[in-house]
Write a protein that binds this DNA or RNA. Structure first.
Lengths: 223, 223
DNA sequence: CGGTTATTTGAGAGTCTTCAAGCTGAGTGG
DNA sequence: CCACTCAGCTTGAAGACTCTCAAATAACCG
């Protein structure tokens, strides 16, 4: 059962610190959108339709190189936003977006949202810290891709994705591999190696149980 | 001759769209800072002293992996800002910052700047688009590092750095190499290959002349 | 000019990718 | 209920690109 638009906003980092009154004004322009698994949400260089907040499901935001290679910039899960920068900056979408499973999003249409930013003196101040957090995450992503090897990247990903020592993969393995800048083959092999070492166990339905979070932590730090 | 603090702010992307009155209030809290070549500006995990705008010189913002490997996140040249996200988000500096040459910066001290953000209703709105631009650049950087090979990354860098077909390297080659996620050896070899192909020419004093910008463009796009 | 640091160049090794083939598993229709 | 099919996943072998280590050369600074 999907949550109310306002609840979805309240749960996401970007809007968490926004005051109640302010949040009401944002919720007033929100619309709900549903996408089937594999459905395209917008394409690179399109005008961004607005700011999306994921309620249920998952969205992959990805670029395609001239060589044909894909890179998944962001696997947006419930509570995450995407297309924020394009909407606020007013530039076209820098990447493609596609639902990886059946997905519901809250959409804040670009024009209405920008109007709200201009009309409401409080909102920009609150969002600024939200954007700073997003920059922070991007920097962490750069750092991860650049400073760690395949094993370290995978270990870190599993640790971040896990709840109670179980990580549920929000998309196909090849998409997650791409997000970590790996091929699906390398992803698969690296996963097998972690199983052999007794650090994780595969379970049915895209689930992975973490058997030794401490050991994974060492790998994630590059030891 | 260094520019006035206000002029420096006006020239940088973050503050370009800020209204004159607003800019005056920002300039009022600005202080000037000088650093010698190689001098540390702040360290990772320090509290960020404030928002820096480079006036003259260049600053390398970098992370160090547990393995000892460095990655230069950002080579900030005149007109660029750094530590924005840390200041706005209120978290500690996510990276080290060091002047690569004698450098002058304009510093907006963190506490005063945050106070200004709260007091001035206009400022956050203007900065929000500035932050969106910064996110955009980070995404481009991720894309570049991940989707292109050494030759492509170098070609793109040279094209972006060039003015009138001459690129002046703002730092040691090893720092630029690190920014492109290359070792200095690979950087050197790749540069030599471009010289052999007749695309560029080395000139004295960290200068590189672009002989065939079109050809470099093809390489940058991964052809 | 001498000492130091940065860059270039060479040889070899590693990690990851590519290409190719078999496997698995969920959904479909007989 | 069971093939069948198709996409995704796994596994193997070969190769490419970049890195590491080592040494020579070049640039810089006092």
């Amino acid at each position: 059962m999907p949550a109310s638009n306002r609840d979805v906003l309240m749960r996401c980092r970007l809007f968490r610190r926004v005051t109640a009154a302010c949040l009401d004004r944002v919720a007033a322009i929100a619309v709900s959108r549903r996408y089937g698994a594999g459905e395209r949400i917008f394409a690179q260089d399109d005008e961004a339709p607005g700011l999306f907040v994921v309620d249920e499901g998952a969205v992959r935001v990805f670029k395609i190189a001239p060589s044909g290679k894909e890179h998944v910039l962001h696997l947006a899960e419930p509570g995450h936003t995407f297309a924020e920068a394009a909407v606020m900056g007013g530039f076209p979408a820098p990447a493609h977006a596609e639902a990886t499973v059946d997905t519901r999003c809250v959409l804040l249409p670009a024009a209405a949202f920008r109007a709200l930013l201009d009309a409401d003196p409080e909102l920009p101040r609150q969002l600024l810290t939200g954007m700073a957090v997003w920059v922070h995450q991007l920097v962490a992503h750069v750092e991860d891709v650049v400073l760690h090897d395949a094993t370290g990247r995978l270990a870190r990903y599993l640790l971040e994705a896990a709840q109670d020592d179980v990580a549920v993969l929000p998309a196909r393995k090849r998409d997650i591999a791409s997000h970590l800048n790996l091929t699906s083959e390398t992803f698969s092999r690296t996963l097998s190696r972690l199983v052999d070492r007794g650090l994780i166990r595969r379970e049915p339905g895209r689930r992975i149980r973490l058997l030794d979070a401490g050991g994974l932590g060492f790998l994630a730090r590059g030891v």
